[in-house]
Structure formats: C-alpha cells, structure tokens
Design a protein around this nucleic acid. Structure first.
Lengths: 208, 208
DNA sequence: TGGTCTCTCAGCCTTTTGGCTGATACCGCT
DNA sequence: AGCGGTATCAGCCAAAAGGCTGAGAGACCA
C-alpha cells in the first residue's frame, strides 16, 4: 500500500511543522512538501503532484488561499484540496467549496478528524468540521439570506466605514440606491442599524 | 549549563507541537510541559515551575491569555511570560505588557527571533517583534490618542452594534454623556462617524 | 491650593440614517 | 409573453447621530 502524499500550505512555520509532526505519526500519510504562500503552493503541486493539499486560507501576502485552490483545481484535477484554517467564516466556506475544496477543517479539530479528512479526500469523500458543516447547511437552507453580488460589494465598502454618500460615489449610484441596498442587507443580516451590520459582517466575514 | 525550561500554552494542538518541534532543535531549550487553556497553564506552572511560559492570547474557552499571565505573575515572579500570538492588537499589547508579559511575538516571527526571545526572557530582557514594538512605541509617544478606561468600555460595546440609547442604558449614563464619550473616541481614533470608528476599532483591537 | 484629567450632563442645531411606498429597466428562464 | 430576481432611482417623514458650547463633581498631583 502506497502512502498518501500531502502538501502543506501555511504561512506560519510553526503550524506547518506542527502539522507535519502530527501527520508523521500516521504511516499511511506522507508529507512530501511544504509551501508558505499561494505561489509556492502552485509550484510545489507542479513538482510533487501530491494526492492531497492541506491549505490555510489566510496567507499573509500575495495570492490568498481561495485563489490558490482555484488555480490548483484548474490546472490539475488530481489534487484534493483540504482547507485547514482558524476561523469559520461564512463567506470563506462558501467560496472555498465553490473553488473546489474537498473539505474544511478548523485548526482546533481533533487529530483523528484531520487524519480521517485526508484519507477521505483521496477517495473523493468530503469532510468538514461540525461547526463548518452547520454553517454551510444554514446557508443552503436559507438562500434568502445570501447577499447578492452587488449587496456584498456594498457591504465590503460599508465595513470600511463609508457614509451613504461616499458609498454612492464609490459605486457610481445614487444615494437612494445605496439606501435600498442597505435596507436589503440589514434585512438579510437580521439587524436594524449600520453599526450592527458592520459588527456582524466583520464577525461573519472572517474573524469570529 | 542547564537548559531553559519552557511551558507552551496554546489551544491549538498543531501550534503546540510545531513550536515544540522547533524549540527541540535548540539544545539549550527544553519544553517540559504544554497546556491548552489558561487553567491548565496555571496548574502546569505550579507543577513544573518553568523558566519561561510561551502563551497564545486567544484561548478558545475559559480564562483568556491576559488573565492567565496576571495570575501566573501574581503567584510566582520566577516565570517570564512570552506572548506568542497571531495578531498584533493595540489593546492586547498594552494589556499583556501591563499584566507582566516579558515579550510579545507574532506567530510569523523567524525561528531565530523566537529563540532569542526565550533566551532573553530568562535574563530579564524584553523582546518583541518589530511591528509590535512600533505599535507600542506609537502609543507611548502619543498618549493623547490612548482611550480612557471609560472610553474603552464604551468602544467595546459600540462594536457590538449598540445605539446611543442602548449604550446609555447599558452603562447607566445619559445619552448626552454617551455622545460626549463618542466624540472623544472619534477624535482619538481619527474618524468622523461611528461606522468608521467600529471599522477601525475592530481592526486595531484585534484582527487586522 | 490650583491645575489637569476624567466622567458626568444639557441644549441647540445640522446632517445622516432608516422605514416606507412606488416605479423603471434589464436579464434569464419558462 | 410573462414572471422572478436584481439593480436602479425618487420622495417623504421620523429617528438617530454628530458638532458645538458650556458646566459641575471628584480624583490626583505638584
């Protein structure tokens, strides 16, 4: 039986070596390469063609994790990509799955869960941590609460602290339209004020 | 020459084992214990009395890192505590230093930097990553921009999305007073609207 | 004792935001 | 041809937020 070849992608050295040590305890899993950035990850995939890529989404600089997943999947369908990250962001989950991720694990997952995800990934099985699964399920069950692209765009500027007028200028739309979009966003986020919208958006969009 | 005994505190197993592997390469540094929570950390300090405690601030549940630092320093002055965390939050830096941390490192620090910090800590030297140092310096140089305790309290509720009225009710002060505090906070943060205040506060206070 | 800081409160006025209703236009799908 | 979803805009009104000035009480410190 051949071991499962794995590429680790994470911009933190300690996380990489920790994961490597952890995976090293499993005889059927073999870490063949590491990368600290999206660009590096692509190069390593080319060179080693690993069966599974375990990737952190938050990469300090350059290409982000989502982008890297997409590129890997574009060029070569043989790799299964597992997301391994600290936070369970709604947007990231959807985008990662959309980009072709086979699984989504949180860094506080139990070792057994991680091993199982890697073994499952090569067989085409999708594994995700419980909190992640529940969030994804929530989104699929409630499509009404998913923002449209334009709304998402507005929200991303909203959390920069812009006023309605500034939002309008930035997006080349009238203030009236801005208010319409905002009303929809508030309804979907379940809030009443822009302050609350910013607060929940920033938390949902990435950092708990 | 005796090795420096170290306790690792982090709620992520992979980070602990990664750091352990990294420190294991140094003959003069000896990881004698690990803990996944503030409570565990206190117990391990009692039991092993390590020379240095390397601690993540963000602990999933229970006592947070700052609290743990304070407790450790209260009971026993012999430990030097090094903060080892992902984000460089203004508030956390000040609070950690205040609680008695000897150094403040980011997780993307170079291995040599980490080794140096540990070796320095036992000699009473304070080491911090460059970005952290610059932020701290900034704060010390510009005391006008440091929020008062009351203002910080208000800000922490503000980023929950509360309205002026709600803030007043929560803090048992009038809406007028809330507005006064907010005006001061805006001035210190260099913004004009509560939306921008929330945006910059959340970024500054913890998650980039 | 006087100065500074912090926290508290008030009134007044302007600007911004939010709620509501209604309308047009484009697109894709049936 | 019609329907649902999206994006655009307008007007009206009430509520919230923000700018400004002024002021009293307590703490702390020189």
């Amino acid at each position: 039986m051949k071991a499962i070849t794995v590429l680790l992608v994470d911009d933190h050295l300690v996380v990489r070596s920790g994961l490597k040590a952890l995976l090293g305890t499993q005889p059927d899993i073999d870490v063949v390469a590491e990368a600290a950035s999206g660009e590096e990850a692509l190069a390593q995939v080319e060179q080693h063609s690993p069966a599974v890529v375990v990737m952190d989404l938050a990469m300090g600089a350059g290409m982000d994790g989502i982008e890297a997943i997409r590129k890997i999947r574009e060029r070569n369908r043989r790799q299964a990509v597992l997301v391994f990250t600290t936070y369970d962001s709604d947007a990231d989950i959807v985008r990662a799955v959309d980009a072709g991720a086979m699984g989504y694990l949180l860094k506080d997952a139990a070792p057994e869960e991680i091993f199982a995800a890697i073994r499952g990934a090569v067989q085409g099985k999708s594994v995700m941590s419980a909190p992640v699964a529940s969030r994804l399920f929530q989104q699929l069950r409630n499509p009404d609460e998913v923002l449209t692209p334009r709304e998402a765009e507005l929200l991303s500027l909203l959390i920069e602290g812009l006023s309605n007028r500034e939002l309008g200028q930035r997006l080349f739309i009238s203030e009236a339209t801005v208010k319409t979009h905002l009303a929809h966003i508030y309804a979907k986020l379940g809030v009443e004020t822009r302050a609350a919208a910013i607060a929940t958006a920033i938390r949902r969009e990435g950092m708990r």
